[in-house]
Amino acid sequence: MQKRKIFDNRLLQITLERLCYEVIEEFDEFENTVILGLQPKGIFLAERIKQNLNRILQKDISLGYLDPTFHRDDFRKKDSPLRPNQTFVPFLLEDKKVLLIDDVLYTGRTVRAALDAMITFGRPAKVKLLVLINRKYSRDIPIQPDYVGMEVNCMQHEKVLVELKEQNAESDNIWIITKEEN
């Protein structure tokens, strides 16, 4: 098994800071705008981006956690039922602008499920997608991100491993792991 590091602590901070300014370009003062982090790992990035935006804009931006499990299309395609995570959306999305945040965009199926889960909280005015890592050429369905931390070209047998301090990792590291082919 080979491991190649693509993000360390410092690069992650710089990238998140850059993404924050990119979204401010679009959302300006974040009026009527909310952030939704996708479970399980997108919520940690969403928390960090919220903290950055709070600092830059000097205001408190609403954040929710969205779990797409019940809207997935691969339920019962696996051996055991998918385990849900907590959804915590303490506001309505009706006519709001929404910034969806996830760690890795791969097949696009999670985001598709998340878009379905999202509209159960109302009809948003506009939705944008921010991902830290965009795995190119791997989409099953036509979903593309609006803001990207890093684009990577990976083969199918390669995996992106995200380790964050919030999950009790020693420091933030993101790796591309290549399994030995037999």
């Binding site: 779990d67 499990t69 019940f70 809207h71 339920f75 849900p84 995570n85 907590q86 959804t87 915590f88 959306v89 309505l92 379905d116 889960a117 509209i119 159960t120 909280f121 109302g122």
Partner: peptide, 16 residues
């Protein structure tokens, strides 16, 4: 407890 959150949403339905 996940489903209790679902049935307290504005749209209380999931397609599972």
């Amino acid at each position: 407890s996940s489903f209790k959150e679902v049935i307290n949403r504005p749209i209380k339905k999931v397609p599972s």
